[in-house]
Design a protein around this nucleic acid. Sequence first.
DNA 1: ACTGGTACTCACCGATTGGTGACAGACCGG
DNA 2: CCGGTCTGTCACCAATCGGTGAGTACCAGT
Lengths: 219, 219
Amino acid sequence: MLNETAVAALEQTNAAEPEKRIRDRSATERAILKAAKNLLAEEGFQNFGINAVARRAGCDKQLIYRYYGGLDGLVDAIGTDLGNWVKDRIPEDTGGMFLLTYGDLMERLSLLFLQALRDDPLMRRIVAWEVSENTEQVKRLSEARSKALGQWLDRMRGSLTPPKGVDTAAVNALIFASIQHLVLAAAAGGQCAGLVLKNGKDWEKAAGALKRLVRGVYG
Amino acid sequence: MLNETAVAALEQTNAAEPEKRIRDRSATERAILKAAKNLLAEEGFQNFGINAVARRAGCDKQLIYRYYGGLDGLVDAIGTDLGNWVKDRIPEDTGGMFLLTYGDLMERLSLLFLQALRDDPLMRRIVAWEVSENTEQVKRLSEARSKALGQWLDRMRGSLTPPKGVDTAAVNALIFASIQHLVLAAAAGGQCAGLVLKNGKDWEKAAGALKRLVRGVYG
DNA sequence: ACTGGTACTCACCGATTGGTGACAGACCGG
DNA sequence: CCGGTCTGTCACCAATCGGTGAGTACCAGT
């Protein structure tokens, strides 16, 4: 539900934009896509609908049907846009460090992923969506990301091998799961399982614990 | 003598209303609460509303306003009902095992929590709700649970002490976070971070990885 | 300058939502 | 027997939802 300030801001935006809509299809398409992403990032998937997107984009919802084939197509467009998320957010260079062991690699990836997720409200909403609904839409949205993370790991791994007897697929899934839930819970309620996560110091502690967890299994 | 319309009305009443709603407030309240819990567990919080609850409870929504003061009060009622979740679901006896170290304790709690969450669709929905919305309602809902988990840990800990230099609050938060996200993602999409979680064998692997993670930090 | 097609807006649809006021019938104490 | 309270039902409200059909404004090619 929109609160008064959001409504006021919207009206203000409309009022501040008396200029006539230009007849530029690609520009309109971009405006719609941008509006959709902002709306999803700011309001979450609960109030994510045709009407709300059109309202924010400042155009008629009919155009969303025409250009994207409805909400489904629009979500798909967001998804393909997010295909490069890992590539854009998580650098492949070692940042001047020497990654000698698989543990080094996973520690680095974990901390980078933690930071990237903290910094991206849109991705957070998508992950929350992912665990709340089971539509084909959402599945496709997140599949690309987990695949991309796996590919990142593959590329960076090189000749590094994990310790013997460790089920890396399962352990890494747990590590990524912990990061995602921690960030989501913190973004939603400021804490996770009783651990307050608000200022930078809180996050330093969390990052330290994450390091310990990773180093515990991978050395 | 009854005229035709009266007979028809009578038959209609009998046919369309096989059982008359009894005038029992507490029974109705229980029916509403049960309907709300089932609805939330089965459909999730997206379609959780006054109308849907009333429909499922088979009564008028007005009664929900009267008896619970609206959806908010109803959610609160669900919350207090869930106050004993940890107590009911996670046994305090050691199950015949000797818990000699803090690691033993955390391993046991982790596996129990994993199983309990897998078995409880209502709690899963609540956790998903928790990371998707930030209302006071939802916050109160989950606060009780994390508090209860902490208390369980306190009671069971006894004289066991964690390894030196480990930030138990942060590490445990990450462990619980990993469990919650793993179970939620699995329930929603059948996998988590590329790890398929469908049959029992998949879950055994996950449980094994969880053990390793816990043992890695706590020994 | 006409014309065809593109970009866009508008009005309307049925359904559903949260919410409220009025009313009917059962029960109980006086 | 009567009046009041409690339980439950119903009708209605404004708002919003997703979705569609029809019409308008504009621009480009000839």
